[in-house]
Simulated assay, not measured.
Amino acid sequence: MGTLILLTAEAAHEGGFGLNFNILETNIINLAIVIGVLVYFGRNILGKVLADRRSQIEQAIQEAEGRVKEAAAALAEQQQKLAQAQTEAQRIKANAEASAQSLRESILKQADEDIVRMQSSAAQDLATQQERVIAELRQRVAAMAVQKAEAHLREQMGEDSQRQLIDRSIAMIGGS
């Protein structure tokens, strides 16, 4: 297109139509025409493209800032929930420790009471067993003493003495 204009301009200058074969001259003119057309028409288009791109970038930055704010708010909320959960966990742990300590003291107290009760019961059982053994020994000793006394009396007393003793005993029982 630029070459055609040059050809037309040169032909008009010489009085006719002709071709310009000077490459440097025609390229510079063509380049100047193309740049001029681009500047004239491209200024609006390029300005509009750059303005659109700028607005897209600004919008993307605003959206990113919005997401950052939302993320920061969500992070703060989750940190608050974490702090509450940690506080609750500490409270539960403290309650559990207090309950465990109370239960431990209760178990120790019950164990002490059981030991005292078992010692008392063992002492009573021992005393009862001792009394039973002593009573049994007394009965055996008494039975042995009676047997020995009877044997001794039989040896030392004759039949006459035995009859007299029996008669006296009967008289005492009958006289009472």
Rank of each mutant, 00 (worst) to 15 (best):
L6T: 11
A32W: 02
H152C: 05
L165G: 01
H152A: 09
A71Q: 12
K109V: 12
A73W: 01
M157P: 06
G15L: 00
I166H: 10
V116D: 11
R54E: 15
I166T: 12
I92F: 03
R163W: 01
E77R: 12
I45M: 00
N44K: 13
Q86L: 04
L137C: 05
E77D: 15
L50A: 12
S169N: 10
V116L: 12
G174K: 15
N95M: 11
Q119Y: 03
I170L: 09
I28N: 09
K69F: 07
V49Y: 12
R104E: 14
M144H: 04
S106Q: 13
A143Y: 01
I166S: 14
V141Q: 04
A83S: 04
G174L: 13
Q130S: 15
H13A: 15
R138T: 09
E97S: 09
L82K: 02
G16W: 05
I173G: 02
Q80H: 12
N27R: 03
E105R: 10
A145N: 10
D167S: 01
I166D: 12
A76D: 07
S106W: 09
R53V: 13
H13Y: 13
A127C: 00
A171H: 06
I92Q: 07
Q78C: 08
G47P: 05
F17T: 14
S120R: 08
R117T: 07
N44V: 02
N30Q: 06
L4D: 14
I166R: 13
E10I: 07
A142E: 11
R91D: 04
E136Q: 15
V49N: 09
N27Q: 05
Q139I: 04
V39C: 11
I5V: 08
G2Q: 01
E159N: 03
S120I: 00
D114S: 10
S102H: 14
L137H: 10
L24S: 07
Q147P: 04
A145E: 08
K69A: 11
L165C: 01
D125R: 03
A143N: 02
